[in-house]
């Protein structure tokens, strides 16, 4: 049986982000891409599940960057059985979540997995998160913000994190879609030597796909929030400062 993990590369926010002249996209030349950190957790959780159940993990991704191979090879090196890349002419297009989901649905149906795992969110989703979107299109049950999973006769048990440490325990009939917030353990390390060996020995299956109408909202303008490089200093007596701080926390809903 199969568990599909959907992996996406996203711009690395460690680098300073800047905008393209038109103002509707990032200056992509200056962007470097990394695997969405939540997707890394989804992969880890899938591998942990599969180690217990004997399922095959299949890593699937849309190659919007031209650099997805690296991510897929790493997934194979970590223990995924297959890696499938959806390739197409995505140059200069921003593939929204809905469009991504529509591209993914046919391959997921073809693989007919019992579980689809993906990261709870990605820093570049403007039009919502992938897991619930896929669930709606596939008509499968779903849960996001998942921090623990377990397979149990025909169902998956998922722990969904709410707030203040409160968790919701759900049991979903299979097949199901989960948006993973954190795997049970830190995503494993795979030595570079192992990845390089996989790159020589394994293959990534490539499927050509056509960009679909995405139904995502039109971005008129991107902008960078005003710089707040330096701390704003609060002064006055301790009492004044305490008042200001409490006011600040209240305004942000933190009290």
């Amino acid at each position: 049986m199969t568990i599909v993990v959907v992996l996406e590369q996203v711009p690395d926010v460690v680098e300073e982000l800047s905008l393209a002249p038109l103002g509707t996209d990032l200056a992509r030349d200056a962007v470097s891409y990394v695997l969405n950190e939540y997707d890394d957790h989804a992969l880890e959780e899938a591998l942990l599940l599969a180690e217990g159940s004997g399922d095959d993990v299949v890593a699937v991704g849309i190659d919007t960057t031209g650099e997805l191979d690296q991510v897929l090879y790493t997934a194979l090196a970590k223990g995924a059985k297959r890696a499938i890349k959806l390739a197409g002419d995505f140059e200069g297009t921003w593939v929204g979540t809905r469009a991504a989901a529509r591209l993914l649905v046919p391959i997921i149906r073809e693989l007919s997995p019992r579980l689809v795992l993906t990261g709870v969110q990605a820093p570049d989703d403007l039009d919502g998160q992938l897991a619930p979107t896929l669930a709606a299109l596939l008509d499968w049950p779903h849960a996001s913000v998942v921090i623990g999973t377990e397979l149990a006769d025909g169902a998956v048990r998922a722990r969904k994190e709410l707030w203040g440490g409160l968790t919701m325990h759900l049991e979903l009939a299979l097949p199901a879609v989960l948006g993973i917030q954190a795997a049970r353990q830190t995503p494993r390390y795979v030595p570079v030597g192992r990845v390089r060996q996989v790159m020589r020995e394994a293959t990534i299956e490539t499927r050509e796909v056509e960009m679909v109408a995405d139904g995502s909202p039109r971005v008129e303008r991107l902008r960078l929030p005003e710089e707040t490089a330096q701390a704003e200093f609060l002064s006055g007596s301790p009492a004044d400062i305490a008042d200001r701080l409490i006011e600040l926390l209240r305004a942000r809903g933190l009290l």
Binding site: D12, V14, T186, R188, Y189, P191, G193
Partner: peptide
């Protein structure tokens, strides 16, 4: 240590982070 890593043993988290950072950045 290389053998331990290649055989899939977990490595201390601080070290893992430094190695991942090195590979990435």
């Amino acid at each position: 240590r290389e053998h331990a890593m290649l055989s899939g043993r977990t490595i201390p988290a601080e070290l893992q982070q430094a190695l991942e950072y090195t590979a990435k950045y």
